[in-house]
Amino acid sequence: MSRFKFLTSLFLILCSQATWAADTTPSTPPPPSELKQARALIEKKDWAGAADVLGSFTRSNPSNADGFNLLGYSLRHLKRYDDALAAYKKALTLDPKHRGAHEYIGEAYIELGQLDKAKQHLDALDKICTFSCEEYRDLKKAYEMASKAKNN
């Protein structure tokens, strides 16, 4: 099969799957109101308020990786790195392919000067994101800037 025919066939298959997917309803339920509230607090950079909401949320929803990821994000902005790392690690235990948790824990490690650990999460994102993704690009940019700064 010629390369052109192969690529055309692949394109048609992908388009037909996208059309089929557009006719389905999402299987993921909307986020709980506490996560919406926490995201609003994060948007306002109210890290302590978000951490309080998310701490309560994760205690009552101990299997919600998004909650732990956002908790880690809020705690990192409060410079509570040990607690932030613990929250990110919990998110990744619940969902090893959680792109946001990989990005944010990588950024935390960069802030702590632990570029080798940040690189591990960058590599994980490279595998998770088949054709790149925003989380990979953001962490890669932060990693490269930190590496450059360290070498100068």
Rank of each mutant, 00 (worst) to 15 (best):
L54F: 12
L54P: 10
G55D: 03
G55P: 01
S56T: 13
F57P: 01
F57A: 03
T58H: 14
T58A: 04
R59Y: 00
S60G: 04
N61Y: 08
N61T: 03
N61W: 04
S63A: 12
S63M: 03
N64E: 13
N64C: 09
A65G: 06
A65R: 10
A65D: 11
D66Y: 04
G67W: 06
G67N: 10
G67R: 10
F68P: 02
N69R: 03
N69S: 09
L70M: 07
L71K: 09
L71I: 03
L71N: 09
L71S: 10
G72Q: 06
G72I: 05
G72R: 08
G72V: 08
Y73D: 02
S74E: 02
L75E: 11
L75W: 08
L75V: 02
L75T: 02
L75Y: 00
L75R: 02
R76D: 14
R76L: 10
H77E: 10
H77S: 09
K79I: 01
K79H: 13
R80T: 00
R80F: 02
Y81W: 11
Y81E: 03
Y81R: 01
D82M: 01
D83M: 08
A84D: 06
A84I: 05
A84P: 11
L85D: 06
L85N: 05
A86N: 14
A86S: 14
A86E: 09
A87Y: 01
A87Q: 09
A87P: 05
A87L: 02
A87M: 03
Y88L: 05
Y88A: 00
K90R: 14
K90Y: 09
K90C: 08
A91N: 09
L92T: 07
T93S: 07
T93L: 12
L94V: 08
L94Q: 11
D95T: 10
D95F: 04
D95Q: 15
P96S: 14
K97A: 12
K97F: 06
H98K: 15
H98W: 13
H98G: 13
R99G: 07
R99A: 15
G100P: 12
G100Q: 14
A101Y: 10
H102R: 04
H102S: 05
H102W: 04
E103Y: 11
E103H: 13
E103F: 07
Y104R: 08
Y104Q: 03
I105N: 06
I105H: 00
G106P: 11
G106M: 06
E107G: 10
A108V: 15
A108C: 12
Y109F: 10
E111P: 00
E111H: 06
E111L: 15
L112Q: 06
L112E: 14
L112A: 05
L112T: 12
L112F: 02
L112N: 00
L112C: 00
L112Y: 00
G113K: 15
G113V: 12
G113N: 11
G113T: 06
Q114W: 00
